[in-house]
Design a protein around this nucleic acid. Structure first.
Lengths: 258, 258
DNA sequence: GCTTGACCTTGACGTAACGTAAGACCTCAC
DNA sequence: GTGAGGTCTTACGTTACGTCAAGGTCAAGC
């Protein structure tokens, strides 16, 4: 017969708290024998089971599921592990984004006493950027994506300001296109073609003439109706289908005329 | 004046649940105005604040702390960020270990219907191994550590069995040394020197003659008294100071004699 | 036999961030 | 004014225990 222990000894032996053992007992996850007086008596086989519990807990499984896995030895474990691994990988992805966001914020603060509001704004931007990034990746070829990564990595604060300015100019352009539509401006007119040129110029600012990037960008916007709602909301000013239709006509007219 | 919203609209706008907004309200984290009838009325400035809340929540900050940061604009944010980043990095480390453990377990299962108990045992081993690994790293030079990493990566199942066998042989050796001590065997005797040779042979099996690895191993064991308790318990069979003292004498005698 | 101190027992409330009803009230279009 | 749909507060459920609190058990010393 192996040795026996009372709660405290056993808890120290296994590196868990007495309260946890009580808890597991109540959940029928680990029920030791009892003395006549009702004292819990743990054996080495209990230690064995507890070690499994602790290990599965480390993997992030809830106690209920641990009990299920340990009790009914059904062929469920592999499935449980697979789904848990997926969950953990997803968790890690979000953790990485959070860590990156903080690191970036810390860099932008540095020694200067940047106001909190600004720092938090920066955090928000980084989080959104990384999440968008994840999503948009699917539309680009590996090569084009690598190119974009490279540019992001090499981006200076100066360039970042320019990029933000780019957003503003896109909004202005959309505003002007809308005005032209409202004025019933002919898509083939010189005025409309000027809008088309502004459009292409802004696109070129992003693609920098890179073919793969250009293809990816086209795919991104061709699928704009399928974006996650949250993302569509962020890009709301650029989602108006009438504008896209109009600009399509402009390009159609331009390509016909020359 | 900006637009105003009622809870549901606002919740959709911001991508949180109505219940969460209620919750934040009760915590005084985000208190909108009210209509005479008591309906909550959110404004764009509320949206601004909510976005910050969501962002800080994404970083894993508890709501209380978020409130503290947002309300009293004390110079606390950088400190909060630093500590939070550390916490997240630690979390990430443990996540990685868990993921690795599952992946390893999945590999050992593969198609064969390995019993659950065995799989879990394997998970425990991987977790312990990785945690030990983390700890022992400090004792090795970067170069020596890289060498060990390389070996681990190249380790086949066959070699893994051998390594486990190594543990068994160490235990046997310790057992034999203890017996020699009990028999009052002279550390300078041939019998004792034979034990010393077995010792060195087992050491060499691990170091494979690599100087850096050898140095690191020495440091690891020189500090065995400082290991975390849990680790000491695991290595309990190898912690008896008398044996170390005796084997020290054996090597002392050997080096004197030649 | 009695006390004392160390250890054990079972409640039972607290935690974090909401989810989920339940029951009552408000608004507005028809 | 009435029904549908939105909103209010209250309150319990969730997870894995932490933290008392009130009260048994047991071996030792007097």
């Amino acid at each position: 017969m192996g040795a026996t222990y009372r709660v405290q000894q056993f808890s120290e032996l296994a590196g868990v708290t007495v309260r946890a053992l009580h808890h597991y007992d109540r959940l029928a996850l680990l029920k030791p024998r009892r003395t006549d007086a009702g004292y819990r008596v743990y054996s080495t086989s209990d230690l064995d089971r507890l070690e499994r519990i602790v290990a599965l807990k480390f993997l992030g499984l809830p106690l209920k599921q641990i009990k299920a896995v340990l009790d009914r030895d059904t062929r469920t474990l592999p499935a449980v592990l697979r789904s848990q691994r997926r969950a953990l990988e997803e968790k890690r992805r979000r953790l990485d984004i959070a860590i990156q966001a903080i690191r970036d914020a810390e860099r932008t603060v540095q020694a200067s006493g940047t106001p909190d509001a600004f720092v938090i704004r920066r955090i928000i931007e980084v989080i959104e950027m990384q999440e968008n990034t994840e999503y948009f990746k699917q539309f680009y070829s590996d090569e084009a994506w690598a190119e974009l990564e490279k540019r992001r990595a090499e981006m200076t604060p100066e360039m970042r300001r320019l990029a933000e300015d780019g957003t503003r100019r896109w909004m202005e352009l959309f505003h002007d296109v809308q005005a032209a539509m409202a004025a019933n401006e002919n898509p083939a007119s010189e005025k409309a073609r000027e809008l088309g040129r502004r459009w292409q110029s802004l696109v070129h600012e992003f693609t920098q003439g890179h073919q793969g990037v250009s293809d990816g960008l086209r795919k991104v916007w061709a699928n704009k109706e399928q974006w996650p709602t949250q993302m569509q909301k962020q890009a709301a000013p650029f989602m108006d289908p009438q504008i896209w239709e109009y600009i399509g006509k402009v390009f159609g007219a331009s390509s016909q005329k020359g």
